[in-house]
């Protein structure tokens, strides 16, 4: 407990939130995840990067069982992911996810998008769910759009609603899969700003992104993946200035050239 308080300022603790132990996954014959191990503590911010097809999406989608791993163990808040449906639903309640393509529910208003899961999954009364939803819509700075439908919003606004929708479930961990890749350049910043704020509030985050500025300013650790393996993991200062592996160097020189 002693050094937990030492870290409290940054929202960090030694409590392990997500633990991947030698996870392996295949698509048919194709080995997508090779012995991946990763430990994420409460309040820690991890940025995952790597070339296209390296298995980044697959990795974070295994954490909430949108994909099934075949070997190794995945624990979220010390609950192991098994085939037990109840177990999976319990973990999904604690793990929020933001997709590249937003995936808002087009037949529901912004507010309904945000209250649906608290109402049906958390079994929260409507009034309370609406209050929580408005709180998070304010946090992502679009409370005035609450009554609109997703189709009436810009991409950046939709992605911020998607973040609010996840936060309404009060998750312990947030997963982001390239949340800004589908956005026009001028909208990327408004989404990143929200994510930076979230990071400063101490949310545990695992974020697949190529926004290196974001990685430098908020990440505790940057993970580099290539061909299904975690090649390198280091704090951003070290990762960007002094990468150890050649593959990382090659990747960085490519991405920073842009």
């Amino acid at each position: 407990m002693a050094h937990a308080t030492a870290n409290a300022e940054a929202g960090r603790s030694d409590e392990i939130m997500v633990d991947l132990q030698r996870v392996n996954k295949w698509y048919g014959d194709f080995h997508v995840l090779k012995d991946v191990s990763l430990t994420v503590r409460r309040g820690e911010r991890i940025v995952v990067c790597g070339p296209s097809g390296s298995g980044k999406s697959t990795l974070i989608r295994c954490i909430n069982r949108l994909e099934e791993h075949q070997q190794g163990r995945i624990l979220v808040e010390n609950i192991e992911l098994t085939n037990d449906v109840k177990n999976i639903e319990m973990i999904r309640r604690e793990v929020g996810m933001v997709f590249q393509s937003f995936n808002l529910f087009p037949h529901l208003t912004v507010l309904e998008n945000c209250t649906l899961a608290p109402l049906w999954v958390r079994k929260m009364p409507q009034r309370e769910a609406a209050a929580v939803a408005m709180k998070f819509l304010e946090r992502v700075r679009i409370p005035e759009q609450a009554e609109k439908y997703p189709g009436q919003l810009s991409g950046g606004q939709q992605q911020r609603v998607a973040i609010a929708r996840s936060l309404c479930m009060m998750p312990q961990v947030m997963l982001f899969d390239e949340p800004t890749s589908a956005l026009d350049p001028e909208m990327i910043k408004e989404v990143l700003d929200v994510m930076v704020e979230l990071a400063h509030e101490g949310m545990t985050m695992i974020c697949v992104t190529h926004e290196m500025g974001f990685a430098k300013s908020v990440a505790d650790n940057v993970v580099f993946m290539d061909q299904g393996e975690i090649v390198e993991m280091a704090p951003p200062a070290e990762f960007f200035t002094n990468p150890r592996s050649d593959r990382t160097k090659a990747f960085l020189s490519q991405i920073l050239a842009h």
Partner: peptide, 19 residues
């Protein structure tokens, strides 16, 4: 993606379909 988003929020299968 709609099914995945619903699953990620913790809806069970029946509710994903129904809602």
């Amino acid at each position: 993606g709609q099914t995945e988003a619903a699953a990620a929020l913790g809806f069970r299968r029946g509710l994903q379909l129904r809602l």
